[in-house]
């Protein structure tokens, strides 16, 4: 099994059948929705890595609607729109609204699988960066505590040193008395 969970949305039964088969051969875990309304229902219930949707669909929810529902529920999910040549302008608008990319009909499956590989690689990179950041945060947090504890100790010791030097420099006080006070300061914790 590949590591991307895909939702495919199209109102055309022939396209659905073909895509389902192709994605299965490539071993993607695939869910199929017959229109935008069903897609929005699936998106509200399950988490997908990629939503692959037709742009023009009847029934109230089109590809843009699917895109908006996806981004609202799970901004991490990437949406790829499938569009006919005539509606490329709409696809560009969709890109501005947060779609990852768009593919033109008829679908070139080599192109689709390259795109899915790219998404998969980007997600892995994102996760690696997140892991690194987490490791860095933990290290930094530990280092910060140690450094800050040391900083407070240094500051306290500096205070004692200046107090001691002040005492020791008091010429009008008996030398033995000065040493005794200085020793008291040193032993006080």
């Amino acid at each position: 099994m590949k590591d991307l969970k895909i939702l495919f949305v199209d109102d055309d039964p022939v396209t659905r059948k073909l895509m389902e088969k192709k994605l299965q051969i490539e071993e993607y875990e695939t869910t199929i929705a017959v229109n935008g309304v069903e897609a929005v229902d699936f998106i509200s219930k399950y988490r997908f890595d990629v939503v692959l949707t037709d742009l023009m669909m009847p029934g109230g929810v089109d590809g843009i609607g699917v895109l908006q529902a996806t981004k609202e529920k799970s901004p991490q999910t990437d949406v790829v729109l499938i569009t006919a040549y005539a509606s490329i302008d709409n696809a560009v608008t969709a890109m501005r609204q947060g779609a990852f990319d768009y593919l033109q009909k008829p679908i070139n499956f080599d192109e689709l699988f390259l795109l899915l590989d790219k998404i998969s690689n980007l997600k892995k990179l994102g996760k690696a960066a997140g892991d690194l950041r987490e490791a860095m945060d933990v290290t930094e947090c530990n280092a910060a505590q140690t450094i800050q504890d040391l900083e407070m100790s240094v500051s306290e010791l500096n205070g004692k040193i200046s107090e001691i030097s002040h005492i020791l420099s008091k010429k009008n006080v008996d030398a033995a008395k000065r040493v005794s006070i200085a020793l008291d300061i040193i032993s006080a914790t």
Partner: peptide, 8 residues
């Protein structure tokens, strides 16, 4: 200052 910086 930064959490791992000091002024000592």
């Amino acid at each position: 200052v930064g959490s791992t910086e000091t002024l000592s």
